[in-house]
Amino acid sequence: MAQEAQLPTTPDRGGAGTPLLQAKTLTKHFPLGGGAVVRAVDGVDFAVLKGETLGVVGESGCGKSTTARVVMQLIPQDKGEMLFDGEIVGGRSLTLKEYRRQAQMVFQDSYASLNPRLTIEDSVAFGPTVHGVSKPAAILKARELLTKVGLDPARFAARYPHELSGGQRQRVNIARALALGPRLVILDEAVSALDKSVEAQVLNLLADLREEFGLTYIFISHDLNVVRFISDRVMVMYLGEVVEIGPVDELYDDPRHPYTRALLSAMPSMDPDNRTMEAPLAGDPPNPINPPDGCRFHPRCPHAQTVCAKVKPVLARTGEGAREAACHMEVAGSGHSRAPKLEEAA
């Protein structure tokens, strides 16, 4: 039947400019035994608008990868919920299986994310067959997508993952993610393992595909240069929490949270006459087991005051643009001496 050979297209419900995905107080804790708990993701709120790329940055232990896995529903959240185009993920009108067709993920390790026993085209065709597309139709679709990601099917479709280079494998993974016709693609350090010259090719490809298929990306990376290049908005995470989120240029040019500032000034200068002279932060990022009270960044923050150790700052709008930061210095009347005066704010 012609009907079973293709996947349905999903109509846009909210219209352009509305959030495609809203995460509300997402929380994921991993008990370690002995009472210790890894607070990997702790009450994370964010929204991804249709057609935009949300960059997520942060250091190891900040919870960015766990957030990706929860968003993909590979691990269930402990608390919180997600709305996809206005519908509750896993609810009655948007089942988990249907959600997983509309949201897809590309992993960092291009080799581990392909089954070594399947040919490239079989790997790409697997998803559609799960959703009821006939095998021949899925294979044709797979070849079409391989062409789209720059791999000639005649040369590559029948090959096995170990015969491809890292960059080629990552292209296959992107084709595989697109095979289900998703609207949201989560890229978890998807270009981090590639060589720089190959990384640039894949970034170009991602930009083209976003254009062609009208995709929305969540782009997770530790490379601040890459995030700046590809993202419309950026979310900065620290110890399982969002410390700052906002439009990319505003955030890079005028970071409001002390951690964002530190992270940005830790970037290599690329200027032999103006090298970095001082490290912005001392020590390693702490691990998310039993994180500190109050603001989680306060033990390392150069501006920390009494209020920071006691009261947890919440994400609040700051500055003129659409920026939010979780810092007492940005909130009038917070009790921090650098906070704006109440009259001024009014």
Binding site: S197, N204, A207, N225, R228, M270
Partner: peptide, 16 residues
């Protein structure tokens, strides 16, 4: 060029 330092958003990268 691939280092992306100072690359403009939305620009095409001159990839090797």
């Amino acid at each position: 060029a691939a280092n992306l330092h100072g690359a403009k958003k939305g620009e095409r990268l001159e990839a090797i």
